[in-house]
Nucleic acid binder design. Structure first.
Lengths: 343, 343
DNA sequence: TTGTAGGCGTTATCAA
DNA sequence: TTGATAACGCCTACAA
């Protein structure tokens, strides 16, 4: 049972394809009688316009591309969730691409998305990406584009991010307030906008408390497997060693916590641990992990909304802007009451 | 800068579109000289065939649809990861659809996938789905289809699953071996194949140990938020109350653990907890959670491999089959050494 | 060895 | 109010 086409309907009803096409789109130039006939028949045969043909014809494809480094990552899977929710409501489909943190794959994915004639792109940069010419080209072509989370401020497009500076500032401040002075920062590759902002927030808090910045305390992970252990060892070998860890991701936090416990270090007695995270089980960890949470789903939703706005009324474009969503600091150290601070 | 088409190349080189088309496909009937000319020019202009036109033409679209209940779920995001890896290597793209556990959306998504002319579908049933006519129709149309994880044995298609029976049997046996006798089973909706198989494994282990099956000890969740608490309360109100919980998912395990701790119940002293899970941090929980792990990524990979096989050589189809991948029981109770049992 | 024509499903333009 | 035709980008008989 091949899909029903306009041609089938035209044939069956002894009409021309153009008449059927117009009837289906409820055109004013078709008689009510013909419309009824066509509509009913189409309904009965469960006619669905072929989106491929529509795309080829040059109108919209009703598809959005989402390009992320990794799906199997709480932040991104939650963000995609938000994107998909909005897209679905507005009649768009979502085609997902993963870059696996590779610049090459990012470029290839962008090309593919374009040749698939998506109506717009949502993108979060790979950690390898420092050159954004491929995105500039996209913008020059007039392709609707919204960046989220890992963005490139120099690009004239809408960007949706969490308040990474504020979150890192709040996190570091909290550690300082509870008496920590040697705060290690275990973070993600330094090209990334979010890494830079978090580092800036961390430094700002240190400065505020008159604690000198020590670059030895900052280490960059690479998304490799089991990378936290060695980095933790390096940090513990410093003298004096850190009395707190501020990590920039779920993965680093879990790796760090595992490494610390394996080495018999009391958390948070000897060393405190606080992390950016989107994991659902931070409060069930041993010890419960204090966290800075990004509103992943909301970021996805907002980004998708902006993109669809851009697509559907390119003319009255309000121009690019950067949207910062607040992060939430949740303190879960067993010794103190549960507290929330919104940055 | 509009994308370059065959027509552009033909025009520039004073050739016909068919000659260019054939030259690009390295057809034997084109002179080496012309081929070189065309190839070089195409290269220079960075020509890429328009996949939309190709799809419309009726050949393959080089796209696969993946339909899952939820992306923001460790099992599925890891499975998609595996799918995407295989698909990418074989030159396919992945279009992802979420059903949000809704039968209606599942049907709609299948339709959409078909009208997007995907070359094949990978699907994991929604928890609402009991009627699989929409899939039977797909099969009748000759559309390549592979089911994974949540499958429907009655459909004559390739199915890729974890050994849910074996995993549940191993898990329950372990709890019985450690002296538990009132083992509650907190699981997912009963329509799902995996729920049934896990229940069967649970029952088989009980029988093996001569422990009578008590249906009061089995409760079904519905993927709602915060649903574990009430279910845990109901179970604890039984007399005698359970001395162990065997949960069927990450979500239920975390909900259950949270509920138990909130109620001041010692885990695993008073009540043991063991779960099917794909979370990365089970060993960092308090207490470390013993788990049965599904090879999510491998399931995705295998399913994608099978699907692509099906697509690329429909003729010598080897017929539908069910593939069961082993699960792994990891015991992490603080009182005993780390052990692994493969089912 | 190369070119011409038709078609995939749809819409837009122009004619009837 | 309806129909014929061309076009989107590509491929493939069939003709030259």
């Amino acid at each position: 049972m091949d899909p029903v086409t306009i041609k089938d309907i035209a044939h069956a009803l002894n009409l021309s394809t153009s008449t059927v096409s117009r009837a289906l789109r409820d055109s004013y130039e078709i008689s009510p009688e013909t419309k009824r006939l066509v509509m009913e028949y189409a309904e009965r045969l469960n006619y669905r316009p072929n989106p491929i043909a529509l795309s080829l014809k040059g109108s919209s494809s009703k598809a959005l591309a989402v390009i992320v480094p990794q799906i199997a990552n709480n932040f991104f899977s939650q963000a995609i969730n938000g994107i998909e929710a909005i897209a679905y409501n507005r009649g768009y489909h979502v085609i997902i691409f993963q870059t696996h943190e590779s610049y090459e794959r990012e470029v290839a994915n962008v090309q593919q998305a374009v040749s698939r004639r998506v109506d717009g792109l949502l993108l979060s940069l790979s950690s390898e990406t420092s050159d954004v010419k491929h995105l500039q080209a996209l913008i020059d072509q007039g392709m609707p584009l919204v960046l989220f989370d890992r963005v490139a401020a120099e690009l004239p497009v809408t960007q949706v991010v969490a308040d990474n500076f504020g979150g890192a500032y709040a996190a570091t401040s909290h550690l300082l307030q509870t008496g920590r002075r040697r705060i290690a920062h275990l973070t993600i590759p330094p090209y990334l906008s979010i890494a830079q902002e978090r580092l800036a927030g961390y430094r700002a808090a240190l400065e505020q408390y008159g604690v000198p910045y020590d670059e030895n305390l900052v280490r960059y992970g690479t998304f490799g497997p089991d990378e936290a252990g060695p980095l933790v060892d390096e940090l513990l070998a410093l003298s004096p060693p850190p009395d707190a860890f501020f990590t920039a991701s779920d993965r680093l936090a879990l790796g760090c916590l595992g490494a610390l416990r394996q080495r018999g270090i009391d958390v948070p007695g000897q060393v405190a641990l606080l992390s950016f995270t989107n994991s659902q089980s931070a409060h069930l960890l041993n010890p419960p992990l204090s966290t800075v949470t990004q509103p992943a789903q909301e970021i996805g939703q907002l980004a998708a909304e902006r993109l669809i706005e851009l697509i559907e009324r390119k003319h009255k474009s309000t121009g690019p802007s950067t949207m910062k969503l607040p992060t939430t600091l949740v303190v879960r150290e067993s010794s103190r009451p549960l507290a929330k601070v919104v940055s």
